[in-house]
Amino acid sequence: MTKPLADQKRPLQVAMVAGEASGDILAAGLIKEIKRHHPDVHCYGIGGPLMQGEGFDSLFPMDRLSVMGLVEVLGRLKELVGIRRQLGDQLIQNPPDIFIGIDAPDFNLGLEKQLKAAGIPTTHYVSPQVWAWREGRLKKIKRSVDHMLALLPFEASYYQGHDVDVTFVGHPLADKVAFSPDKGKARQSLSIARQGLVVGVLPGSRKAEVARLGELFLTTARMLRKEVPSVRFIVPCANDKRKVQLLQMLENYKDLDITLFDGRASDVMAASDAILIASGTATLEAALHKRPLVVSYRMSALTFAIAKRLVKVEHVALPNLLAGRELVPELLQDEATPENLCKAMQRALFDQAYQKELVHEFEKIHQQLKRNASELAYGAVKSVIESHHATKCA
């Protein structure tokens, strides 16, 4: 077991904020690693069910931070600013040993700036996509963050080139997902037949995502079933609210052979022959499961128009970004039609040469990202705390 950090006269105090399901996964892994070295640590702030399962004390509901889009956030701005102000005041009055912002840069960077100015060391886990758009945030990052924890190799190179302390930790999903996932075992765990074509459908974890993509994906599923009558569909529900939302939609799709699961996203991916999926972190998990996937997304017209002018990269799906080329189709906004999605899904299901190429490329991505991320992240966090203590005692 690691010795207590220098000059630590009380249990280690670690404040964190995660804003959505992917951040909850990352933070839960880090909390578990911190607890392995410091069993009496107190981790608190804003987090989700996985973090709370590791003993995290969430002072506000995480789902209040789960909002996507430049325009969509305006309707929640007053509430978000209020939560950030309350949390910032609490942390400054009772300073933690470190603050770790997990993704959610629009919320966390402002909070990190406030805390760093008050003498609290800060670390940010998951780089904001400054390499893709809004590069002006780099100045804010330098003022707000003592150390960046990067999940992707090109992110670390970017920060090193801009004189920001950074550690490339890899991605915890690459540590978690088996290199050769067992489709049969996954189907058995979900109590579905081992034989037959199965398509995983993942329309996102946020209410707005499911509202924009749910009907689109279900209509695509209906169209695909007309072409492939034997296909069945499986859908993981991110939480109870999303399950209710999807069940309401399914009232109009009773002709589909479709099964909903509470969570179980990883098992759904492993059990699938191909995956129809919303753009986001889940696209990387699908690739790590070595399954062909079709990526889609819709947002408000104004948000999309603004983003299109600002984004500097050619691709949005993480597998494509990591490969530096389009491995999997990205059908966004006006291109996201049932016809286009159905055609792409048929290729994903039946083009064996394409499937073989994808598996080869996905294996390379997996090897690149498998680095024991939570352990490396803990080591970086520990170094920041110790450096801060040494400076205070100098």
Rank of each mutant, 00 (worst) to 15 (best):
M16G: 04
M16L: 15
M16Q: 09
M16P: 07
V17N: 03
V17L: 08
V17P: 00
A18Q: 13
A21R: 13
S22W: 06
G23V: 11
D24Q: 13
D24F: 09
I25V: 14
I25Y: 15
L26Y: 14
G29T: 05
L30K: 01
I31Q: 07
E33D: 13
E33Q: 14
I34Q: 04
R36C: 03
P39H: 06
D40I: 00
C43Y: 10
C43I: 05
G45P: 10
G48K: 07
M51F: 06
M51L: 09
Q52N: 08
M62A: 04
M62S: 04
M62N: 04
R64D: 14
S66P: 01
V67Q: 12
V67S: 06
M68T: 07
G69V: 09
L70W: 03
L70Y: 14
V71D: 03
V71T: 12
E72H: 09
E72N: 12
V73T: 13
L74A: 02
G75D: 13
L77N: 04
E79Q: 15
L80R: 08
V81W: 06
V81F: 11
I83R: 13
Q86H: 10
L91Q: 02
L91A: 05
L91R: 04
I92C: 02
Q93C: 10
Q93K: 15
P96Y: 04
D97F: 00
D97H: 14
G101P: 05
G101R: 12
G101I: 09
I102R: 10
D103V: 05
A104I: 07
